[in-house]
Every structure is written in C-alpha cells, then in structure tokens.
Design a protein around this nucleic acid. Structure first.
Lengths: 329, 329
DNA sequence: TTGAAAGCGCTAACAG
DNA sequence: CTGTTAGCGCTTTCAA
C-alpha cells in the first residue's frame, strides 16, 4: 500500500532523502525550519517508513521474539499481556511463537527468529540442554528466559522462586498440624513444577514427614475422573498442595463429592491466584504469582540488554505472596 | 548473528548468488547436481536467509499481524493458539499486538502493521467505524475480522452467530417454563455481547416476556459484591443467561450463598464452555464456542487471501452447540 | 540452466 | 546543518 517512499517526501519537502531520514531518526540534527517542512510533507503524503527497508539498512529490526509453550494457560497469557504492553511502550513489535512445549521446536524457532533479525528474544522453555543454553548465551542477540532459569545463571531470566513458595506453603500446612500432605502435580514435565515439588519435599523432610505425590493426566476431563477414583480407592490425605489453581479446585471438588469436608478434613493450597481460586466454593487459598509482571519486567530487561545498557542484575526473582481464603484453617 | 550471507554460499558452492537464491525459491529451475552442491554449501556454512533482506527484495514478508484486545481472556488466548498453529504450518510469522480494546489504537496498530510490511492481518476489534472498515477493505493487504463482522460484509470474517446462540439458549429457558429470565452482561462495550443481548431479547419478545438486563462491573471482584447486593435487594429471576461462563459462575455462587437452589429455583446458562463451567458446582450448562477454530480458520482464510486464491466464502460462520450440565433442568 | 546487474527503501558514513 | 554516496542481503528480470 504505502507506495509513498522517502524519496517522495524528499521531493515534496525539497530536501535530500538523507534529511528526511534524519528528521525521522535524529530530529535534533535538523534545522527546525527544515524539519517542519519535512514533517509537513510527511503528513501531506501520509508517509510511513518501511520497517523492512529500515531494518535492512540499520541492521536493527525493533522486533523481539516471544516463544511460549501455549497461550491458553492463564499463567502464560497474562505474561504475554505484560510483554506486549512494555514492548509497545518501547516501540518494539513482538513476534509470537508457540511451541507446544516441544523443546527441539523451541530451539528451532529461536534460530528462525534470529534469522528474522529480531533484536532480542523472550523465551519460556523448559529443560534446555547445556548446549542450547550455551548457544543462546553466546549469541549477539540477547535472550531472556521467562519463569525458568538455567542453573548456572548464564542467561538473563525473570522468575519466581517456586521452590521457596512451595516450601513455605507446605510449611504452613505442617504448622497447621497436618501429617499426611499430598502434592498434586501434572504428569507433563515442567521444570517449574519440579521446583515446586522440591520445595514441598524439603519442607516435609525437615519435619520428618513422608511425601505423597499424586500425578494426574494432562487432559482435564481425565483428571477429574482420576481424582474421583483416587478418593474411592485411597485414604484421603490431611492436606494438599497443587501445582496450579485449576488442579487444586478439581481435587477439592472430587474430595467434596466424596463427602470430605474442606478445610476441616482436608486443607488445600493452589498456585497462581487465578480466577479459579475466587470462583471455587469454598474459595481457594493460593500462592499469588505476579504473572503479568514477569512478562513486563522481562521485556524491560530485554530492552536494556538490547541497548547494551549496563545491567547490574541479570536474573530477577519476583516476589510471591500468599492469599489465605477458605480452604486452609 | 548469522554472518553467513548468500554470497558466502555462492562462493563455496562455486555458483552465482542468483543460483543460490533459486535453489531456495525455485529449486526445480536448478540442475539437480548444482542444487546439491548449493545445498551442501548451505548446510556446511549453516546459512539461514535473512528474512528482512528477502522481504525487502520480494516485497513480501511472510509475516501476518494479529490484533487482539487482550490475551488473558480464555476466548482470545485459545484463538491465538489457533492462529499460531496454522500460521506456523504455512510458515508465516505472527506479529502480536494487544490494544486493550481501544479502537483508535487498533486502527493505528493496523496502520503500523501495514507499514511493517505484513502480508495480511487478523483483527479482533469492536465497533469499527464505517470509514475504518472502508479503509481496511480497500487496502491491498487483506484483513480478516475475528469473532465480529461488519454488517455489510465488506470485510472477510470468521465468527459465531452469537445472536442465534443466545436466542436458542433463551428459548430453551422459556420452554423450561421460566418467565422472569435475566441477561447478565458486562458493562464494557463489546459488539459480541450486544449480539447476544439481541438474541436474548428476540426470544423474549416472541414469547411476550419482559427482558431484565443486569450489567456488571468490569472488575471481577466488584462483580461478586454487586451480585450479592443484587440478591439482597431484588427478587431473584427464574433463570439467567450470562455473556461469559465466568460471569455465570459468579452469579450462581452469589445466588447459592443467598440460599437459592440451582437449578430448581434458578436455571443458569453460560457462554463459551471454558474450564470454569466444569469446575463450578453445580457444573454449568453453557454454549460451546469453537474458539481455537475461529483462529485457525481465520488464519487459513487469510493465507488464501494472501495468495490471491479464489475464495468463495469470505464470511465464515462457525457452529456453536449446547452443553447441558447441571444448572439447567 | 546459469550469471550479471539492477534495484527493494532505507541508514550511515563522509564531505561540504 | 545538509547532500552524496555506498551499501544492507536478497529477488528478479534479462541475456547468455
């Protein structure tokens, strides 16, 4: 569409194209009067610089890549909103790519993005191999990890201390006098969930209690059935910590249908503080995670990295908190 | 990073850069033997074509723009997944932009995307003015509307017949013998919700019943309070249709806390068939919307439009269905 | 079947 | 402060 090029503007304003380029990129270097003439011409013609040509000439695209496993989990969609808002603010465009949690895809996508000349990338991907981390860390275009981090801290990252959060939640459950505390986790393999499990185990170990891990199926509907079956065939635990609010609510619903009273016979804590927690009955006690902020802070960090500003803190841990509602005593 | 250019490949393969370009874009026009030599060189050097340079030279970017009001509503995040999957399949990259429902922003974003040389755009935006629609429709880069449509059908669109869905749901409620049927809507202005309201009103009008519209606040927490207040100060309706599952569940929870029995004293139907509907107690009857498919189908339609293939049907209505659970008799 | 050459629309030295 | 001049890395005629 935009058939109007920088040449047209230059002609109308009666200057060289270099001057037009200057008022666009370094307006202070142009005499006010000329600048105005150029601006007027731009307006008159409805000129919009061609981002691609600009990218080619300047070797900077003002594009960033965003790699996520999926959009349709609240924990990631809110983060995307955070990324998008800050990107917008700094006038970056964001390339979205969803990998469905397949790692080789993530790495491949990353390479494609680099080839597409993004200036930086935000990546949410589990279990990157050492080689992969090495490659990301050594590339000239900066990559920031979302929610997860590599253990050696080679890559910038914005995350939550999931281990600590789970540890503290479990500890609370222990303090409330519970002995048989279950951990309800997902069968799919998330690094995040592994950290949560570690925190859970640490708290139990300190108290000399036995862990009890309950896996569940990826498919939502199957999980409900699985939970029902669980309560039909097993002694119910005294308390439970779940990897996500939705999981916690499903577990709770199954328990209640089995005649168990929450929180009297069974205390439950979720993870994330989503709407699920408010909408369940009883309302779910949960760990509040600043999801939006993870995205926003990561994007902000990335802008600094891209501008090669001095960044003191390259691995940022955002604070979690607890929201005590009606599923805990 | 990819410092390797097409020249390097040409040199190593001992051909001209034109030939390398050909094996990339029209492999059949190159003698198999040469082709293999080039391919080998590409492999050896780890060459990846620079998407930006390619875009500039070919005037096609293989990028599409995706404009949404937010990511963190299930109805849009699932759609995004649909778009992303199909885009991936056709090797398009997607530029994501969230507008927070502000229309002037959406139009502006659209222009920026066009300037960024996208080959097409998918847009979810309410209440576009006639001028805006005109502009989108007349541009050389195709735009497909998501979920909403312009009334004259000038723009391609993929959507649900929300009016009909609401009409049918309301009719079911009427057939069940309810007289006082409420419509629970959001105070923010969505074209979609307006259509739902129209369907609701049509069904009531046909039955000679009076409509009863209940607005609610945008903020989730406030809504719960508002609903509680509603039940404290007003006669409860016999039945209700809500614009979203989450709204339906909140309304139901408030009702139940007020001592109303669902579905005996109050029948409720939601919209969307999200996890909320399964996780509520009782489980919510709702209208199933193929959210993922809206995105997927729209993206597929867009690829055709971009290739200038013949498209017979430019406004596609996807089917809805009903899921009767425990909040209806 | 291949190569030479002319751009795509812009930025960025370098002069002036 | 402004203009001239090279490219950025690739596609695409046009000839050979």
């Amino acid at each position: 569409m935009s058939k109007v090029t920088i040449y047209d503007v230059a002609r109308v304003a009666d200057v060289s194209l270099a001057t037009v380029s200057r008022v666009l990129n370094n307006p202070e270097k142009v005499k006010p009067k000329t600048r105005e003439r150029v601006l007027a011409a731009i307006n008159e013609l409805g000129y919009r610089p061609n981002a691609i040509a600009r990218g080619l000439a300047s070797r900077r695209s003002t594009n960033v890549g965003l790699i996520v496993p999926t959009c349709s989990r609240a924990s990631v969609s809110e983060m995307i909103d955070g990324v998008a808002d800050i990107a917008d603010k700094y006038r970056y465009s964001v390339f979205l790519n969803v990998t469905h949690n397949e790692n080789d895809i993530a790495t491949n996508v990353w390479q494609n993005m680099i080839a597409s000349q993004v200036d930086g990338v935000l990546m949410m991907a589990d279990k990157l191999s050492d080689d992969e981390i090495e490659r990301l860390a050594n590339d000239t275009v900066p990559t920031v990890l979302l929610s997860v981090k590599d253990l050696d801290g080679r890559l910038p990252a914005v995350l939550i201390d999931y281990e600590l959060a789970a540890y503290e939640a479990t500890k609370k459950l222990i303090e409330n006098g519970n002995k048989d505390i279950a951990f309800i986790t997902s069968s799919s393999y998330y690094a995040m969930n592994e950290l949560k499990e570690q925190g859970y185990r640490r708290a139990l170990a300190e108290a000399g209690l036995e862990p009890r891990i309950l896996g569940l199926y990826n498919k939502f509907e199957n999980s409900l059935e699985a939970f029902k079956e669980f309560f039909a065939n097993n002694a119910a635990p005294d308390a439970a910590l779940a990897v996500r609010d939705s999981v916690a609510v499903m577990f709770m619903n199954a328990a209640i249908e089995h005649g168990i009273s929450v929180p009297n016979d069974l205390e439950i804590i979720g993870f994330q503080n989503t709407k699920y927690a408010i909408m369940s009955r009883p309302q779910l006690s949960t760990i509040n995670i600043p999801t939006y902020d993870i995205g926003a802070v990561a994007m902000r960090l990335l802008t600094k990295l891209m501008k090669e500003e001095e960044v003191t803190e390259t691995q940022i841990t955002l604070p979690h908190s607890f929201v005590w509602r009606s599923t805990t005593k």
